[in-house]
Design a protein around this nucleic acid. Structure first.
Length: 283
DNA sequence: AAGGATACCTGAATGC
DNA sequence: TGCATTCAGGTATCCT
């Protein structure tokens, strides 16, 4: 489910709560979603958590890493104890992997990290840290907004494709981290029609759009991401960005700027929401 | 090479 | 109520 802000929220939670702990055991309930040798991670200490696009990397003290992609319905849930009575206390029918963690402070309780995933699209793979970026998913990621995407690079990306601008924003090979929610919201803020060919955007539009992308991503990160059907943070808490949606999932409602009705179309098979008056086909 | 359709899964919402 | 259909925030792969 999650896009960049949601995955970043998970990353920050992991960084705060599980870095420094040792992986004491691992229980794989959905073997089709797990790749690599699980025994390698047992006994290793978690030393850091990175994010590239919508992908997470948990780095371990033994030069191995655990790469995770939660796709549409995956989420991580952290149970620090001591309320839990058994390792399964927070497992549910969608729990696919359970990590048992041990704090270096021997007086504290064992804790558990659950990977839950309704649709089983997500994956977890154990791989040497130096080879993580060779995984096909990470290797093919485009530049990341808020870090290495500037206006000249953005304009290069837009000019070298024949696709509609919305498809380009969501193409992880071109730009990483943006999914359907933030593509819709950013295009609305920048007042650009989603089906406009990316190559037709002039400099001012590209600048507006890049600014809008940065604005929606930053704002969402600060409030814990957007929660639609499934997304929750490490503690099962929802984000709040969905309360700020201007067009996403709002077809038939009034545009907050011009009061025109928001429409829904499909682009690349994905629901696309826009205001036909604010986001004109030609500009 | 790039872009579109489809597949991978399950559950919720909608339609009849 | 029951049953069928459609849709869902993502990405890999096959096809043109």
């Amino acid at each position: 489910m999650p896009e960049l802000p949601e995955v970043e929220t998970i990353r920050r939670g992991l960084e705060k709560y599980v870095v420094g702990q040792q992986i004491a055991d691992i229980n794989i309930l959905s073997s089709k979603q797990f790749f690599g040798d699980p025994k390698i991670v047992i006994g290793a200490e978690i030393i850091g958590v990175r994010r590239f696009g919508k992908g997470l990397i948990i780095d371990l003290s033994n030069d191995f890493s655990i790469a995770i992609h939660v796709k549409m319905t995956g989420n991580l849930f952290y149970d620090a104890g001591p309320v839990r009575r058994s390792p399964d206390a927070h497992a549910n029918k969608h729990t696919r992997v359970i990590f048992k963690l041990k704090s270096k402070n021997s007086k504290s309780w064992d804790s558990y990290l659950y990977y839950n995933d309704i649709r089983k699209f997500g994956w977890i793979r154990v791989v040497e840290t130096k080879k993580v970026m060779d995984l096909p998913f990470f290797k093919s990621l485009g530049p990341e907004p808020l870090r290495d995407l500037d206006l000249p690079l953005f304009r290069d990306i837009l000019s070298s494709t024949t696709a509609p601008i919305k498809s380009v924003l969501m193409d992880q090979h071109k730009i990483s981290g943006i999914g359907n929610i933030y593509a819709n919201e950013a295009l609305f803020l920048a007042k650009i029609y989603p089906l406009r060919l990316a190559s037709s955007l002039h400099q001012g539009e590209a600048r507006r759009l890049l600014g809008a992308i940065e604005e929606v991503l930053r704002k969402s990160i600060t409030i814990g991401g957007a929660s639609m059907a499934n997304y929750v943070n490490l503690f099962g808490k929802k984000g709040a960005y969905q309360e700020n949606f201007l067009v996403y999932k709002r077809e038939g409602e009034k545009c907050s700027f011009c009061k025109n009705l928001i429409e829904k179309i499909k682009i690349g098979g994905r629901g696309t929401f826009y205001c036909p008056k604010c986001q004109r086909e030609v500009s």
